[in-house]
Amino acid sequence: MTTPFLSVERLSQRYPDGEGGTTTIFENASFGIERGEFVVILGHSGCGKSTIMNILAGLAEASEGVVIMDGKEVSGPSLDRGVVFQNYSLLPWLSALKNVTFAVAARYPDWSKDQVLSHSKKHLEMVGLSADVFNRKPSQLSGGMRQRVSIARAFSISPKLLLLDEPFGALDALTRGTIQDELLKVWAGTNQTVFMITHDIDEAILLADRILLMSNGPYARVAESVEITIPRPRNRIEIVEHPNYYAIRNHLVQFLGKRSKELAGPTDAAENRPVTVRIDKTAPAAPSPKKLAV
């Protein structure tokens, strides 16, 4: 087996529980992400999704285990791993444009001012922002616009891995939809590897190549890896008519509603790799492996 582009190996996170013992959030989690893949992780609160993301970003350290990206161990934050946070994390004293140029200048210190500026503007336009909002401060932008700036900033530094931490969690449903489209459009042109957290099942199906499902914590693990067998380009309206859509969606709902609880608790396995699940109704000839929760 070849090593994937990003390899998470036997990652565990434990905290002292305040009574002398430890609480294990997740244990021996192992999974991989291929270059150019869009992977979404789904799970209930408290299963450690955000912790995994912070470890991938280098903002937190795991109790045990390693993350290897592109042959090198991840330690500390780096420009190779861009992060879009749920609360946008724009610097409020800088204009939208300056929030991007500051990142671009950090990424490409040799570039001239003009280069930095045109590169930044290009990315702001890519996410659908027009020139008249470039000079506005984040407080003068709507939530959706702020998150666009944040996405533009992340794409502008072309990180090897893009981490999205519930990027649309704070947006209303309509805005969320348009920005999802925007994100898909920008992503399609880049071959960017993305790892994203969300709570929204439909969002996950729309965006992902693969969805990782986590069982409940404590002792959570990445239990399944569900392939999204719906061809790209996808869009929100047509995707629901694809024969695989509801099959996959039902599987996810079943998992989150029932099986994530049943699977909770410690295991004896030295390594918890997710089981691959492939649901494809368009190819009935191929015997579908694994259980189909319909």
Partner: peptide, 11 residues
């Protein structure tokens, strides 16, 4: 969050 922005941009 703002400190994390600085950290992820290797300032």
């Amino acid at each position: 969050d703002w400190v994390n922005v600085a950290r992820t941009h290797e300032l």
